[in-house]
Nucleic acid binder design. Structure first.
Lengths: 229, 229
DNA sequence: TGACTTAGTGTCATATTTACACATAGTGTG
DNA sequence: CACACTATGTGTAAATATGACACTAAGTCA
């Protein structure tokens, strides 16, 4: 007990809501807890903030340590500080959400020191702490943000078909979109680069692959043109 | 030094960006610091989170203690946790923003134990800590939020003219709006209640006063109708 | 070769947004 | 008391954006 303070201090943690997208399904990366409390239960990856690291550094470190993820899209979500959110003591957690290209990070085997697995957002296990509530907030944020910022691309492979992109928006926004209107709109925004490649290994006509043209997007953004689905 | 922990813990504070609106000007409530560090400099109202209170409770307590404000619109903004943001030691702050009806809370005299004053957002003094950065984030948030949620009304008196409302939007969004189009749009949303009163003490034709009809807004919201300027 | 699956494409009706100007009401002044 | 001043309050038309809708084309597989 080396650290002494005049006033009681809450513990400070970070937790990460990691989104992936695969086969038309929005997924979350969860970790099976190896320690009490809630040992054996699924939870968001996260852990204590060290005194010498920033909050985002802590979140990135935990993602690396617990899930082998690095260089992902990461943004602060919300800070949860209710009294009873941790049964041990007062713990305040700064939640982040991450978007990862799922095929770069295939489900890790159950052989990991900590068990990590992807779950479909509409088939989640019961979670530790207030992590279900954190996920609800993250889903709302994702829904709100994806329409006005080109972050959906963070969930798709570098090259993707327009149909994949449309399905992503449909799943996140919990709606259906008209194919022709969707294509018209997204192509009119002029932020997609057509590649000369097409899908592989599909049992039907292969679709053209596109990539998100970030450079062009930055230029358009400067001009005040904005991205809206 | 009664509180002892195995690992070092950052101190945890809350800071509040308090917005007001007056005479066509967006204002911020600042406090002149009575203690080191940055003694005498202007800063956001805020302080340490007590171990037995939630984050929002802490923010509301500080608003009451330092500015005599209660029952204001308050929402979490962002959590700032960079190493060097406090010269004393590691301090993580959860920032909130508040919207207050300025005429309910007239500028307090310089006689307060702590000096509190309203400043126009485009004429701010140099601030303590990273508070200028926090304000930048708050302004962006306000700008983003005011268009899609009926929070602008929190900054106006209960009864207001359409011109006041328009000016508020113009100042927050840093743009100009067409009078006829603005009125058409806001009235078409059907969330304003016309009163039978008109402005007083103006040296020109007095404008009709309206009030925001929160009940009606909730109903429309349920139906999926949304508020967009 | 024929069945199957998904890709890819255009038009028209409707709704929304934008641009734009003048008569009216009330105050203050000479 | 009339005239200047200031801000209120109002409608229309053009341009743009959105939403509905169905068929041919390309490729796989049996």
């Amino acid at each position: 007990m080396k650290y002494k303070y005049e006033f009681a201090r809450p513990a400070l943690t970070v937790d990460c809501v990691v989104f992936g997208f695969d086969e038309g399904d929005l997924k979350l990366l969860l970790i099976q807890r190896g320690l009490e409390p809630y040992m054996g239960q699924w939870a968001l990856p996260g852990g204590f903030v060290r005194i010498e690291e920033s909050l985002e550094e802590a979140a990135r470190r935990e993602l690396e340590e617990e899930a082998g993820l690095n260089k992902v899209f990461l943004e602060q979500l919300y800070t949860f500080g209710e009294q009873e959110r941790d049964p041990r003591e007062r713990v305040v957690t700064v939640a982040y959400y991450a978007l990862v290209k799922l095929d770069d990070h295939k489900p890790r085997g159950a052989t990991d020191a900590q068990n990590a697995a992807w779950f479909s957002v509409d088939d989640l296990p019961h979670l530790a702490f207030d992590h279900e509530q954190i996920i609800d907030v993250a889903l709302e944020r994702l829904k709100g943000k994806v329409r006005y910022a080109p972050i959906g691309f963070e969930l798709l492979p570098k090259k993707f078909t327009l149909t994949q992109l449309q399905h992503l928006y449909e799943v996140v926004l919990e709606t259906t979109l008209d194919k022709r209107n969707f294509r018209k709109k997204i192509l009119a925004m002029d932020v997609l680069q057509e590649t000369d490649e097409i899908e592989k290994d599909v049992a039907h006509r292969a679709a053209r692959l596109y990539r998100f043209d970030e450079k062009k997007y930055r230029q358009l953004e400067k001009k005040g043109v904005n991205f809206v689905i």
